[in-house]
């Protein structure tokens, strides 16, 4: 398995009025054609890690890394234009809530076509056909109807399918999914995950799956990274989650209720100050 993405000692910091805030503090991992989960609580730096790989960090932020490489391309040395050419065509990202991440005044079809035509020279009718095929690939039953709908006219699950179609149409090799199901109903979550899983496997993509839901990540991914306060506290295979050594991971696992068990008092996550160091 060839390595798609190398991240070594990634640091993302934001200058603020009260000093520099480090959101990501030395994250390292390598990713091949596999599904990697990044888990952590709010503010643990998991989203900023994903955005740094995409090159979507806010302008004022500072990114440092010993190595940040995507299939042989040094992302830190790449120009703005080079990174833009990568985005959408080779690295894509799915955002959390389709209600906000789709342009409300543009039809779904046009938004999908827009991605394709930014990266490939294709004619109008061919682009339309490929967008319709892509909509079918994310299991939308009536692609022709959905193509002409506006985002507010579809449900959350449908919107997220459209989002996936929009991001995958140019055939990226790496997909970063930033909480792709957190805004959806539980029943729809599984549908979306199944679609995502199928596409990732069929197309041989690498996937970085960012979530706060340890259970979801462990069933869906091959490998899991647990982050806390901008650092990786533990990295393990999803199947070996129960053997987690770090007390924070154990704490997260303990939070999950089990059927038939009564727990009084409910366990609370304990956060040791030395983990911040």
């Amino acid at each position: 398995m060839s390595t798609l993405l190398h991240v070594e000692d990634l640091r993302v910091s934001f200058p603020t009025r009260t000093g520099v805030v480090e959101a990501v503090r030395g994250v390292s991992f390598a990713l091949g054609q596999e599904r990697l989960g990044i888990v952590g609580e709010s503010g643990s730096g998991k989203s900023q890690t994903g955005r740094a790989i995409m090159g979507l960090t806010p302008q004022q932020a500072e990114i440092k890394a010993k190595r940040l490489e995507f299939s042989g391309i040094d992302l830190l040395k790449a120009s703005q234009a080079e990174r833009r050419a990568l985005r959408g065509s080779r690295i894509a990202m799915i955002l959390q809530d389709p209600k906000y991440s789709l342009d409300p005044v543009m039809t779904i079809g046009r938004q999908i076509v827009e991605t394709l035509r930014t990266h490939e020279k294709v004619g109008k009718s061919e682009a339309r056909q490929r967008a319709l095929d892509m909509l079918a690939a994310v299991q939308i039953r009536d692609p022709k109807r959905v193509y002409d709908l506006y985002p507010h006219e579809v449900s959350g699950g449908m919107g997220q399918r459209a989002m996936i179609a929009m991001m995958l149409i140019a055939g990226p090799e790496l997909l970063i999914a930033d909480e792709p199901t957190s805004a959806l109903d539980v029943t729809v979550q599984l549908d979306i995950l199944r679609i995502l899983d199928r596409l990732v496997i069929d197309r041989g993509m690498g996937l970085v799956f960012i979530s706060h839901d340890l259970r979801l990540v462990s069933t869906f991914c091959d490998r899991v990274i647990v982050m806390y306060a901008g650092k990786i506290v533990e990295e393990l295979k999803a199947s070996e989650l129960s053997q987690a050594k770090h007390p924070y991971t154990q704490g997260l696992l303990n939070c999950m209720p089990k059927i038939g068990e009564s727990r009084h008092p409910l366990p609370v996550l304990d956060r040791q100050p030395e983990w911040l160091l």
Partner: peptide, 25 residues
């Protein structure tokens, strides 16, 4: 807005993002 982040993630040019998406809204 988030859809601007999505537009950047699609690899659109800044011109297109500003005039085609943001100003259109």
């Amino acid at each position: 807005q988030e859809y601007i982040v999505a537009a950047r993630a699609k690899g659109l040019s800044e011109t297109r993002i500003i005039w085609g998406h943001a100003l259109r809204n």
